[in-house]
Design a protein around this nucleic acid. Structure first.
Lengths: 347, 347
DNA sequence: CTGTTAGCGCGTTCAA
DNA sequence: TTGAACGCGCTAACAG
């Protein structure tokens, strides 16, 4: 219900000065009274008056203006590549769980996997004085921009790693992820395989490529020649590359590794359009264990990605940087195979 | 690669005063030279000097400090309930497409569908001086908080409507959505139906409930007694309610309307666990046409939600409010049925 | 065309 | 225990 008080609420936020003149005291005193850590310095009776006046006027401290003095905004920026890839959701939730208990608000922005946008966004966020930055959207060419940002504000790179960078990184061992899938294919008896690669300037995809190829070689799987990579690791690109594999290759692979789940979904659709069955005609594995992949038809074999833990760890490192801890170790977590119905022995 | 210049980049951002003293001019002149709309006022030669100096020092205007004077931050806040529900992604993208061409950055925050969090978040965002607010997470009890916010900063409610509020709303006709599904069930020949309801303080769910019931009555479908509603419209709650329907009801419905897709997915799993088949034993329809629902097993019959358009329209209204347009009309779009394999005639 | 003054809303001196 | 003065980084208004 809308009360009269609500209707009369002012169109501008009350300021410290408003409260001060209301109670006939100086802004400084009001400032002290309203700051828990300094409230003790002020007479408890006058404090009471100040607090009630502040409430009546709906006073809220202005974080922006305050930050000019304190340098803190209680806000951190999280920069993601693509919120449509539900892989990131657990990461965001992990971050939020860790920082919200400290009263810090994470704000999220999206790059659409475009480095230009990333640069603009970092710039904007610094300019808005966020206390820290967590970058989930790093590509190799972004290393400079990110490490410059790190000189201004505590910065952590997560989810997508970056090598040779002087910024803490929280990642999953993606080389191992690629290896696991290749071993799985080999164990099932496949001999001819292919990869649907994501953009190789994203470490996750280059590492998966390497890990998969290493094991493929060791286990003597034949890898069909590479047909380029996805410009962006999305369903559309997965569809395009899978169609290409099915129409252009001299030989048809019996198992395909799509380097993330959206691309695997695109591959599913392409296979269907070609009148082939999964896994009878061709096996497909993805990676990241995105929500819903278990319920696809057939359930998608994938590599579980501990997203919540990655987010939580990234946030923890960030908080330590904010506490001026000098030496913060990077973190690397392990992935696990989740075998489901989309992979089976070759026909 | 990391160049020498990068390594020497300062740990604090350069300020207007830094640039000014570098070129031996006053901060005002530098300010003018660097603002496109006032750059004409300054000698083109000295402007040149200023610009190069600014670049060399890596100067970036401080949006926060500027906003103290101008009142603009070129940032709008978008508040979503749950980013794990991929239904919101197209909405976010619609918003971003519209505002980014104006040089405005949307920052996203998540409430987890908790009104307390919503209140804190709005407070924080106002306090951070966003130029406008788009609320995608409104529940009925949030109306006061939202309309107070609207007095301070241009505010638009979208995706989840709110009645009797003096704030523009962009929504989809959810009553029609519910009606469409009931018609579909009736047309298929179903006689006994049930609804898995979302929280009724969210307008989308109360409207779907009403629309569905109206048509059910008109078409003489028997609705199994309501078994409560989801606390939160998620997969887990859909699973819980579907299990309840299957175990507790005297009668078993032949068709169930889950009021959004995540709840429909939860229902899918519950049905499977009870050893029943979809759609042979029981039909299930969802709503929102969330990405991936087409690929479930079986493909989910759902109601398409024009999310991108909702986001785009919401952003357009927001921009008009920012341009001080007085009378901004609310917008209501129409949903469409997307029949797929999860619904069929009753056994 | 350029510099000076003032102040946005706060927190932090320092004095009283 | 309280207040006055200052400055955070910037722009607006007025001088010159």
């Amino acid at each position: 219900m809308t009360t009269r008080a609500d209707l009369m609420r002012p169109r501008k936020r009350a300021t410290l000065a408003d409260v001060a003149s209301e109670v006939g005291l100086s802004p400084s005193t009001v400032s002290r009274a309203l700051d828990p850590s300094r409230a003790a310095m002020v007479n408890s009776l006058t404090r009471e008056r100040i607090v009630t006046a502040a409430e009546r006027l709906g006073y809220r401290p202005d974080v922006q203006a305050r930050s000019l003095m304190t340098g803190r905004t209680q806000t951190i920026a999280v920069i993601a590549a693509d919120l449509g890839n539900t892989w990131v959701t657990p990461i965001l939730h992990g971050i939020a769980s860790r920082v919200s208990v400290e009263g810090i608000v994470p704000v999220i922005a999206e790059t659409n996997d475009d480095s230009t946008v990333l640069t603009h966004l970092i710039d904007h966020m610094l300019s808005r004085r966020v206390d820290a930055l967590i970058v989930l959207a790093a590509r190799r060419q972004d290393a400079d921009v990110i490490s410059s940002a790190a000189r201004i504000v505590p910065t952590v790179v997560a989810a997508r790693g970056l090598v040779d960078i002087d910024v803490p990184v929280v990642a999953v061992d993606d080389r191992l992820g690629g290896q696991i899938v290749a071993e799985h294919f080999a164990d099932l008896g496949h001999r001819v395989v292919a990869q649907i690669k994501g953009p190789l300037d994203v470490s996750n995809f280059s590492l998966r490529t390497e890990g998969f190829s290493e094991v493929a070689e060791r286990r003597r799987l034949r890898q069909l020649p590479v047909l380029g990579e996805a410009a962006v690791p999305t369903e559309e690109e997965g569809h395009r590359l899978m169609s290409q594999i099915l129409t252009e290759a001299d030989d048809r692979p019996t198992a395909v590794f799509a380097q993330n789940d959206p691309m695997a979904v695109g591959a599913f659709m392409a296979v269907r359009e070609h009148g082939l069955r999964i896994p009878e005609d061709i096996s497909i594995a993805g990676t990241n264990d995105m929500p819903l992949t278990a319920l696809l038809d057939p359930g998608l074999t994938t590599v579980h990605y501990p997203g919540w833990e990655v987010g939580y760890a990234a946030a923890s490192l960030t908080l330590r940087l904010l506490d001026r801890v000098e030496h913060v170790e990077s973190v690397c977590l392990d992935p696990d195979l989740v075998p489901r119905a989309s992979t089976a022995p070759p026909p």
